[in-house]
Design a protein around this nucleic acid. Structure first.
Lengths: 248, 248
DNA sequence: TAGGGGAACTTGTACAAACAAGCGAGCCCC
DNA sequence: GGGGCTCGCTTGTTTGTACAAGTTCCCCTA
């Protein structure tokens, strides 16, 4: 059962994407839409709020809503799962485990992932046949057995873990910056050592806030771009001064 | 006049930051909070929705809300204005125009910024005394005169333009990737040519969707990090994007 | 013609009520 | 002891109403 406001949001999104509401034009008023969809104004408000967080429309009190763009911003699943992102965007993709080993947690890691023997995995992922991403992931002890059971060429770890143990990656924090390719990075990605990589470090937790993994993902320059749309109201992206050596 | 739900959100945020609700603990139920603050349940829902988009709490249907963290991501205009971001985070900062010239718009630029003679500005910005950012900004013709009146060492272009002509940067799209430093980049930032830079390309518009500027900003690696907090609940798109319909 | 004053419209906030959907704990039965 | 089930609690969805606050545009006036 899909909520009514979501169906309304879908309908409006489709209209915008189809060009019925060009970029820069005004959306119909809430009351107008409420009449058209036979819903209460509050329900329509929820629908347009969805479009606003997607960055498609902007609004301010007193004035009609404005269509801001026609491209959806990065969605949650896309940030967490390379496979889901690639599939949603129509790319061929693959993955291969290069290295995998158990090791005790450092002090900093214990604080983030809990105590015990962590599982460290190095994966190389390809997009349209090209190697584009080196993933260094550290899993908490309680998920390690499930990860170790996965095949080395598992396409989507996120989906596989959901299938096998019902694990849901519910929340995440992502830090994005640029780094030089190390020797191993360069060898795996086929670039010279020192060339620029786009790095996304993330930590993921379950619904109840239990940490699942932390990862250091490095994209070959040019292969992937992060896109964020922000309005005055709500945007989840912030800039930070870089001093996070406390990471390892 | 601050909205009621914002005052409630402020109160709850303060409690969380003060440790009254530790990370991982459950927040009181909506009805409980409604009783405590003497507000309707819907108002309390709006308040906790604010905390959810800030990444402080997470929620799922049927279960009590969970406290996820104690670091607030409070960026509204922070992505648009280097000065506002730096000031809000207690950094010393400065800026200097290196080059500035008028030139006709290319075809692609006409589509993005409108026709006419654009204004191209190259700025170098410092953070805590260090050069960290090369900004190459192209302004639409209608803002160019106001920009040309600014002093070369103007600290905050965003604020100055608001003061002088009431211009508000309301919406923006940001593309983030990694690039190699060019010869000019390296000279200005004091790094070797070819070393990694974090690039943020943005286009900004006013409230009514009129484009104001596009910019190519390059940060020295390590100086600035972008941070995103996200949750499944806050992004209804997930359900549509992947194959995991049962998610959520 | 330039500017001020409204009036109509639009979005934002708040309340109340009801039902749906999902979670968790405790209970019962085997 | 383990498994399944029910029931109460909690969050999610929807409708309706009322008022507040901000925008837009027209008209009137100086």
């Amino acid at each position: 059962m899909v909520a009514r406001y979501e169906r309304i949001a879908d309908a409006l999104r489709e209209e915008i994407l189809a060009g019925a509401h060009p970029v820069g034009s005004q959306l119909p008023s809430e009351s107008e839409l409420a009449g058209r969809f036979g819903a209460a104004r509050g329900t329509v408000r929820q629908a347009v709020a969805v479009l606003a967080t997607e960055g498609l429309v902007g609004s301010r009190q007193g004035a009609r809503r404005i269509v801001l763009g026609r491209a959806r911003s990065q969605s949650f699943a896309e940030l967490h799962s390379f496979a889901q992102w690639a599939r949603a965007n129509g790319h061929r993709f693959g993955g291969q485990v290069i290295e995998q080993r158990r090791r005790p947690a450092s002090a900093a890691e214990s604080a983030r992932l809990g105590h015990g023997e962590l599982l460290e995995v190095l994966r190389l992922r390809t997009l349209d046949g090209e190697p584009v991403l080196v993933e260094r992931t550290v899993y908490a002890e309680w998920v390690a057995p499930a990860v170790e059971r996965l095949p080395a060429d598992c396409e989507s770890v996120t989906e596989a873990l959901y299938e096998s143990i019902g694990l849901v990656f519910a929340y995440g924090e992502h830090l994005i910056d640029a780094v030089s390719a190390g020797a191993q990075d360069g060898r795996l990605l086929g670039v010279r050592r020192g060339s620029p990589l786009l790095r996304q470090r993330r930590t993921t937790t379950t619904y109840d806030g239990r940490p699942v993994e932390t990862s250091d993902d490095r994209y070959r320059a040019g292969s992937v771009i992060f896109s964020i749309r922000n309005s005055i109201g709500a945007n989840p992206l912030v800039r930070r001064a870089g001093d996070l050596r406390s990471w390892r």
